[in-house]
Design a binder for these strands. Structure first.
Lengths: 233, 233
DNA sequence: ATATAACTATGTTTAAAAACACAAATATAA
DNA sequence: TTATATTTGTGTTTTTAAACATAGTTATAT
């Protein structure tokens, strides 16, 4: 499931967001308690029902956070890319995990004990604000997604997802190809539709010259129109 | 839009959650800066695009938080009842409001300047944890709702909403009538369906003897079955 | 290298929910 | 009170997307 490692990675440069608000003592303590894990493609990082123990920071790779829904139909809540934190919400809510996380690609994850983090942020207002801000942004995104995913039609939902992926992962050197390669099924689970509909709608977008596809590579050709399709729903 | 008032209400007994984690100095300062506002039924408390300035605590009445969606179709994100806090997420995310709040019933709201709250929680770990925990719980709820509202069918969605309302607002002396009276339209906007479908499905539930309705009063008769309907979607 | 599994693609059918239309009941305001 | 607006209720039609079916393609593993 995962390999182990320590000390090779420079935490101060990888955990920048947290590192810069910590005192020297806190940094020392954190360094002593940090673990680095490696996950292979499709490895499960945590799953629904487990007890959250660590704050996770993704150093390398891509991670999907998803929930099992009706009839074991999965819904992807969000996708994490480096360097971002995940896995802490359930701990703070004093709940078991209600979602699962798995590696899209080979991943390097840094685990920091939540007990330690909580202990720090009780004394460290900047660290507290850091989490408050992350949670606040994520809650805003979640509220937005509910409306998009429930009210927009298939075309609007898929268009929004493509734009969101472009925004989150950026584009390759050509300035147009989205920097993440998802299976059609993942695209569907992220956009609240069946795989067939994702495939079909993607084909339509190609025919309408809004995008071009080459396997799992998606190139956005006419962003204006895609934005319009996303907006009108 | 709203009346003003001060000092008549005992903040210490109304703001309990926050009050108990504050120092005497903080309490004093907060008391000096707290404002009490009264809202009439259907009054707007804040709206999308405005700049968040205050933490709001609902002392009396009921408030709905909602977003304008596709084709000005509203989606109710959550409903607030006393004594709960709202209006702080956008401030922490450094965004304008992306939702609106309005009074379902005549409301009494206590406004506390967010600047002051932020200043406090930077020093006060317990206060910070209080917000972190609220945000974490709300984010969990939001993630759950996305899946329910997108994957469950109309019957399952409405059943879930009824159960949720019962859980949040409790029941009247008869032990079965839900303690909040919503228009069918609000019920629909909270359950992601059209008003017609809310009305129709409600009628079906009545015919199936799961609930009884008397105007806007909803009495849950067979909770077991309602739970089952909610679960199977 | 070949077999097997997983993914992509597309056409057809079926089911769900929205849209529409209208009537009745209730609430609100002049 | 009466007039007007809003809300509730129900039937019908249309649209949307899911479900199903099947084939071609690409990965993966042995």
């Amino acid at each position: 499931m995962a390999g182990k490692n320590r000390g090779i990675i420079d935490l101060s440069s990888s955990l920048t967001d947290i590192w810069r608000v910590l005192s020297d003592v806190e940094r020392e303590k954190l360094r002593d308690n940090a673990r680095i894990l490696h996950f292979k493609k499709n490895d499960l990082i945590y799953t629904e029902g487990e007890t959250p123990k660590d704050l996770m920071c993704l150093f390398k790779g891509k991670v999907k956070i998803y929930k099992r829904g009706v009839g074991s139909r999965n819904h992807i809540i969000r996708i994490i890319c480096p360097v971002h934190y995940f896995g802490y919400r359930a701990y703070f809510a004093r709940e078991p995990y209600v979602s699962s996380a798995s590696a899209f690609e080979p991943c390097t994850v840094c685990l920091l004990p939540m007990e330690l983090i909580e202990q720090f942020l009780r004394k460290n207002g900047n660290l507290a604000l850091f989490f408050i801000q992350m949670l606040s942004v994520d809650l805003g995104v979640a509220d937005h997604r509910v409306v998009s995913l429930t009210q927009k039609h298939v075309r609007g939902r898929l268009a929004e997802t493509l734009l969101l992926l472009k925004e989150s992962y950026g584009v390759e050197e050509d300035g147009a190809t989205i920097n993440i390669y998802l299976a059609r099924e993942d695209l569907a689970n992220f956009s609240n539709m069946t795989t067939s509909n994702a495939i079909r709608t993607l084909s339509n977008f190609v025919n309408e010259r809004m995008i071009a596809i080459d396997g799992r590579k998606i190139k956005i050709i006419d962003e204006e129109r895609l934005i319009k399709v996303s907006r009108i729903g």
